[in-house]
Design a protein around this nucleic acid. Sequence first.
DNA 1: AGTGCCATGTAATTCGTTACATGATTTC
DNA 2: GAAATCATGTAACGAATTACATGGCACT
Lengths: 184, 184
Amino acid sequence: VTVRAQPNTTELAVLGLIAFEERSGYDLARLAQQSVGYLWTPSRSQIYKVLPRLVDRGLATVRGVPQVDRPDKAVYRITPAGRRAIRAWLEQVDVEPAADTNVFALKLFFGDLVPTPVVRAQLDGYRDFLEQRLRRFESMRRDTAGGEPIFPQLVLRRAIVRIQATLVWIEEATRALPAHHGGS
Amino acid sequence: VTVRAQPNTTELAVLGLIAFEERSGYDLARLAQQSVGYLWTPSRSQIYKVLPRLVDRGLATVRGVPQVDRPDKAVYRITPAGRRAIRAWLEQVDVEPAADTNVFALKLFFGDLVPTPVVRAQLDGYRDFLEQRLRRFESMRRDTAGGEPIFPQLVLRRAIVRIQATLVWIEEATRALPAHHGGS
DNA sequence: AGTGCCATGTAATTCGTTACATGATTTC
DNA sequence: GAAATCATGTAACGAATTACATGGCACT
């Protein structure tokens, strides 16, 4: 058996959504716009490309559902291998998620698939990451404090206040975590 | 003369950076990692692809600079047409910047290229946009308040506190705006 | 009669990343 | 002697978007 490369974020997001309930591509597109919309909103065509790929790799299964008053549809459901893949993703805490700081939020969104300690580890990792960025930004701010460039400084300030707000939220979220649940 | 489609965000970011001072591709890559890094960090190869394109469209010019102790380099400078393009971008307030809420911040970063009222309009637009999202998110929160799904709710809460922090920042930034400057 | 939702997909194109390739100079 | 910095690019690949295509049913 070849070692499968980890699915990309879009694939994992789809996996996460079909982990709760089986869904069609159309469902997923609608759902993404509503619930996860502020974190991840792929186009419909992208979703239709991803779904067969998941089936090919054994992470999901399809089932045709004939309908009378509407077009027939194909609904997708996660497989055990799919569950393993998404758990592995949720267990892995990114130290450097580059520009994509939203991956943390996306992982938290699927926190229900995993025991509480794993979610807690994720939040801890997020906190570390943000504190590090905060320090970097604050030192950047000190370095250019006297200088002229006001607009870059304003933008930097924005980044700082957002991080601070997010850190406060992390504490709140940590306290709100369920005592512990199975994750399965 | 054909009507040129508006350059994309990366092209505009590059234009903005060579508006202050002429720079080489290498300079830009380094600069992006530092100053604008938290908003926009393209790869080096991407920058090297964009620069000739800007020249082709008459938005920038190149000039070869021979050096003795280092490799020769090519430095790029913005043209009047380039300035027009970036000003047009800064003047246009996006009502629906999709997922990419950072475009607002990026535009503010280049606020110096444009008179104060234009920047103010940009901030106002950003405020409107955020207030609208905030209302949407808060109503989503109310709708699912009693329900079970705790993790989605936590993530939603994160989005809300970040928006609130950003709104506070907008007020601060608006007050910090210079009385008025030329922009040119 | 027209609009909108349900439903799935393909095609063309753009955007972007990673890896490869090269090579001198400076610094440790 | 090794590693980092300066400097520019190409090639291969993947991810994602927009536009196109199709068609029935429900609602106003």
